[in-house]
Amino acid sequence: MAPIDDLDRFEPVSDPRPNDVPWPELDWPIPARTELSGDVVCLTPADPASDAPDLFRQLDHDIVWAHLPFRATTIDEMSQMLAAWSESLDWHAWTVRLQRDHGDLPAGSIVGMTSYLGVNVRDARLEIGATLYTPEVWGTAVNPEAKWLLLRHAFETLQAGRVQLKTDTRNHRSQQAIARLGARYEGTLRRHYRRADGTVRDDVMFSIIAEDWPEVNERLISRLHAWK
Rank of each mutant, 00 (worst) to 15 (best):
V119F: 01
S86F: 03
H102W: 06
R122A: 09
R125E: 13
E127I: 04
R100M: 13
G139P: 02
E127A: 10
P144Y: 01
V163Q: 12
D51L: 09
T157E: 15
L150C: 10
P53W: 00
G139L: 10
T74F: 00
E127W: 02
V142L: 06
L59E: 08
R152G: 03
V137G: 01
G112P: 03
A52K: 04
D76W: 03
A154S: 14
V142P: 01
E77F: 01
M81T: 15
M78S: 07
A124S: 15
Q80S: 14
A141Y: 00
D104N: 12
F56H: 14
I63F: 00
A141H: 03
W138C: 00
H92I: 04
Q99P: 01
V142W: 00
W148C: 01
R125F: 04
I128P: 02
V137F: 01
V96M: 01
L82D: 11
P135C: 09
A130Q: 12
G139R: 10
I128Y: 02
P135Q: 11
D101T: 12
E145N: 06
M113F: 04
V142R: 04
A83P: 06
H153P: 05
L105H: 08
D54H: 08
A72P: 04
L98T: 07
S88W: 00
R71L: 05
W148V: 01
A160S: 12
M81R: 14
A93M: 14
V119N: 10
P144D: 07
A52L: 08
T114C: 06
L150G: 07
W148S: 00
W85F: 15
G118P: 05
H102G: 07
P144L: 08
L59C: 04
P135Y: 08
F155D: 07
F56S: 09
P106L: 05
I75G: 12
L98Y: 10
R125W: 07
E87I: 10
D47F: 05
L132R: 13
T131D: 00
H153T: 11
D54R: 09
H92Q: 13
E156G: 13
Q164G: 14
D62F: 00
T73D: 10
D62W: 02
D101L: 10
Q58R: 14
A130F: 08
Q99C: 13
A146S: 11
S115W: 06
P135I: 05
A83Y: 11
D101V: 06
R122N: 13
D104I: 08
R162Y: 02
S86Q: 15
L68P: 01
G103E: 10
F155M: 09
V119D: 08
A84S: 15
S79N: 08
L132T: 12
N143T: 03
G108K: 12
N143E: 02
V119L: 08
E136K: 10
A146E: 02
R57T: 15
R71E: 13
K147N: 07
S88D: 13
S115R: 07
M81S: 15
D90L: 05
R122M: 14
W91V: 13
T157Y: 06
P69H: 11
Q159H: 14
H153C: 06
A130K: 09
N120W: 03
D101W: 09
D47Q: 13
R152H: 12
L158D: 10
